[in-house]
Design a protein around this nucleic acid. Structure first.
Lengths: 347, 347
DNA sequence: GGCGTTTTGAGGTACGCAACTCATTTTGAG
DNA sequence: CTCAAAATGAGTTGCGTACCTCAAAACGCC
């Protein structure tokens, strides 16, 4: 009837007694301090295993004395998505201070590898953990590895550097996101055949390139009736996005689908509306902002692929904290999902 | 450049000094203990406010001594979704025991109000918090209110009892979920007109009724070309669901959409396949399980409306813990989203 | 002003662990 | 067997809070 799940009340003292050693030795083993014979280490470890003992985090945290500090290295521009992440960090302030955690934001130009690498340098002196929106570049990778070597915990946020030795990546799989976008455009277009347009910020950006790759994959294999036009580059700016798309719409009367890979959504929507084709073209974009929310409600946009910025902010903090404490990470909890947002499940 | 967010290092002693009182008095105010003049209370509160002081949770938890215990009251049947919630609770065991939290599952017949009410009775003696998958019924409401009056923290899980005085609801808005399902069926069917079938467990279940309501709302207002057939009741059983749906498919050749509101998905899929119409009918159901995952990959199901069971399990625990500690709840974090899951964003 | 009551102060103990010191025991090499 | 090095034991202190006791002070009432 009632199935008990947990509640150990053991302490380090119990472990010491069971292993037949003193508290000091258990402490040495627990913190990988030198001066313990391998055989003794084994005995202690076994006692811990046998009882599936977990040190009381509250006691450990309290005894530690020193507060933990984390740095968030983020783009300095007015990117609304990044702004949302920072806003959600702000909402955590009570939670953070109740745990004596300090979180500081470092603004930098994440698109310039040397500037970014310079910003990262030396952060390990002041911080126990660093979350960074990283550009995938050898210089940045080296900077991240340096931080790791210096003992800091490093998490990449939103954009990954897989070749680095960062401890964790908090963000979505962009290829899968592109696939989801492709499937949505294809399915929502339905039986008709025609052309599909893609507007991206730049194909040089790793996340954009991956999304386009996934999108094309699905289009090619599953929607042979739809032909994808060459990618337009709008540099994530409204004006330029509107301009290039307007020209394309003028040249092709049979565009039935549109995928906006990055920002510049305002411009894309305007080009569609001005051409009077916002109701006929299936329009899928990214992220839930005040703007995309409005466009979804108006029916101009049909779906938005989204990653939850609040979740990313909190997951980054939790992962850094777990890493610093040596606790296991709840992978399932920290995984960022690809959300499909349509008018009726707007968060 | 660097924007600091938190890190108070104040202690109760500092607050006491600032308020010009002793530690004992601050303690009395903090825990609403009697014997403090209103004016003194105000002074202490002001000092706390002024410094935005937060008690150190680790110290508080440690000093408390007693471990906290939570009960999860859940259906005894083989419902896969509920099973997933329990599995995810199990995955938290290290996390729980590191915090000296005890979580126990109480299996009961949640569909019988008197049995459920009886199971709830007296739980407040043994547990600090209770999460319950509740049937919305006056007897259950009264039982919940009794628990609250006895000082326990109560959270409704998956299915709400809004009229009770439960402290929190962890679950989705089922009307919105039904609307999302309706929008998907309508959009994926596309231009064609035809009939749409609904299979539910029972219209007496609040969550099913709400989903159907939302579904019909969208169908009526936005997809006039589709006509919704009377709701079939499959009691969430495979056999019965298959049977009733097969009969309906036989009678109507022009069914283009299908909404499966509850469980019994296996039976629904079989009826569709046996009729050879699994590729023509747009099929939207609920929840991501091993089965629905397979059906999505095979293209039999087109989309699943899902609430993340892992998130629900963890959110329920976190909310109960925050309530018990008197900490604020991170609403944004604990809100359960309506996930639209298609083949390419399968988690 | 005296009385009883209410309010406040002072202090202690305990929680479980980290981090440290210093004395003692064990070990292995010569 | 001897001796230095390595391993271990025993113990202390402190983290910030909860919870408790007892005495002292302030208060309100007549």
């Amino acid at each position: 009837m009632a199935d008990t799940l947990t509640a150990s009340a053991l302490t380090l003292k119990d472990i010491a007694r069971q292993a037949g050693v003193s508290l000091a030795t258990v402490d040495r083993v627990l913190h990988n301090r030198p001066g313990v014979r391998p055989d003794t280490v084994r005995r202690v470890r076994e006692a811990i295993e046998r009882n599936s003992f977990q040190p009381h985090v509250a006691a450990a945290e309290l005894a530690r004395g020193r507060a933990r500090r984390f740095a968030f290295v983020m783009p300095s521009g007015p990117n609304p998505f990044m702004q949302q992440i920072q806003d959600y960090l702000g909402e955590m302030s009570a939670w953070l201070s109740a745990r004596r955690l300090g979180v500081e934001t470092v603004a930098t130009d994440v698109f310039d590898p040397s500037v970014l690498a310079a910003s990262l340098e030396g952060l390990s002196d002041d911080y126990d953990g660093i979350a960074v929106v990283a550009l995938d570049h050898p210089g940045v990778r080296a900077a991240i590895d340096d931080l790791v070597d210096a003992g800091a915990k490093v998490v990449t946020l939103v954009s990954d550097v897989p070749s680095s030795r960062r401890h964790h990546y908090v963000g979505i799989d962009n290829i899968a996101a592109g696939r989801a976008a492709g499937a949505l455009v294809g399915r929502l277009v339905g039986q008709q055949s025609g052309k599909v347009a893609i507007v991206a910020g730049s194909q040089g950006l790793r996340d954009h390139a991956e999304r386009i790759f996934g999108f094309n994959q699905v289009m090619a294999s599953e929607f042979p009736g739809l032909s994808v036009l060459p990618v337009l580059e709008g540099r994530d700016e409204d004006g330029r996005s509107e301009q290039v798309l307007a020209r394309l719409l003028g040249r092709h009367a049979d565009i039935v689908g549109l995928y906006n890979v990055g920002a510049g959504t305002q411009g894309v929507a305007r080009a569609l509306s001005d051409a009077g084709r916002d109701k006929q073209v299936v329009f899928v974009g990214h992220d839930v902002t005040a703007l995309t929310r409005r466009l979804l409600l108006q029916g101009v946009m049909d779906a938005a692929i989204s990653q939850n910025p609040g979740h990313e902010a909190r997951a980054a903090v939790r992962v850094l904290l777990a890493l610093a404490r040596g606790e296991p990470i709840l992978r399932e909890q920290e995984k960022i999902r690809i959300d499909i947002v349509m008018r009726d499940n707007l968060p």
